[in-house]
């Protein structure tokens, strides 16, 4: 069993809905990212999703785009992100999932990239621009290393695609709540409930919902609809950007805790 599957199994046995915060690595700097991850880990996170800044983040809305641009402008590199995580993961109870676009993986070379992830204690990856058809080779290579590729299911995915996706998926399925890019929205569409139920009929894997969830109420709603996990990204990234340095980690921890509390009710 992979670390992600194992961790989700434990959460399920405790009837706990997983909270999965996302932060962009290197915004405002990698040291802050490391402190933020430690704080989140202690304040209710169950998994940690770490975004590798990319020059052309097609699937991201304005908040995460801007964070990636700032991070790259500071000179953040994939190497430096992985090195930070190598030092950090032994101190974390939550498995770490890397969010990265596909081209940086190609640039390093898929096998070297996966070996490096493994060596850094990373448990899996989300690749927003890699659909299952293009990911066969990488999936085989990842499986050989007990690393999970977390595949995305979209509101527009036809049933036949969802079946194919369920057949190859591992760890959990990342259900995209809305047609669109990442970012905060005022409400979560009711159709998410139907999507969860539909996916449930196709797979026994845990289902985590992301894109557009930014408040405790929204997180609670998605949990009540039957999700096994909730992914919150832009709200954390925005908070890290807007709060003054001395308040940042406290505010981050409080917000994380408030989300976790909403999931525990």
């Amino acid at each position: 069993m992979t670390r992600i599957a194992d961790h989700f199994a434990q959460l399920r046995s405790r009837r706990t809905v997983a909270l999965i915060p996302f932060v962009t690595a290197g915004d405002p700097d990698l040291e802050t990212t490391a402190q933020a991850l430690l704080t989140l880990d202690q304040q209710g996170a169950d998994f940690l999703e770490v975004g590798v800044p990319y020059s052309d983040p097609l699937a991201d809305g304005p908040v995460i785009q801007a964070a990636a641009t700032r991070s790259l402008a500071r000179g953040t590199t994939l190497n430096a992100v992985l090195e930070m995580l190598r030092q950090l993961t032994p101190q974390l109870k939550s498995p770490v999932i890397l969010f990265t676009y596909y081209n940086p993986i190609l640039a390093v070379g898929p096998e070297a990239f996966l070996d490096r992830l493994k060596a850094c204690g990373i448990s899996g990856m989300v690749i927003p621009d890699l659909p299952i058809e293009e990911g066969e080779t990488l999936r085989t290579l990842a499986q050989a290393r007990a690393l999970e590729i977390i595949w995305l299911a979209a509101p527009t995915s036809p049933q036949a695609r969802l079946q194919n996706l369920a057949a190859v998926a591992g760890g959990f399925i990342y259900l995209v709540s809305t047609t669109g890019v990442t970012g905060m929205r005022t409400q979560v569409a009711d159709s998410v409930k139907t999507s969860i139920e539909n996916l449930r009929s196709l797979t026994t894997l845990p289902i985590a919902v992301g894109f557009g969830i930014s408040t405790p109420d929204q997180a609670r709603q998605v949990a009540q609809w039957g999700a096994d996990g909730v992914i919150v990204g832009s709200a954390f990234v925005k908070l890290l950007q807007e709060k003054p340095a001395e308040e940042r980690l406290i505010a981050l921890g409080q917000f994380c805790r408030s989300l976790k509390d909403a999931l525990s009710v």
Binding site: L58, E133, W151, P155, T156, S157, V176
Partner: peptide, 20 residues
């Protein structure tokens, strides 16, 4: 049939666009 010109081409897009 997979949208390839030799090793080039393909469909590297978010899942949301695949059906479109």
């Amino acid at each position: 049939s997979r949208g390839r010109f030799g090793r080039f081409g393909g469909q590297y897009v978010p899942e949301t666009l695949m059906s479109a």
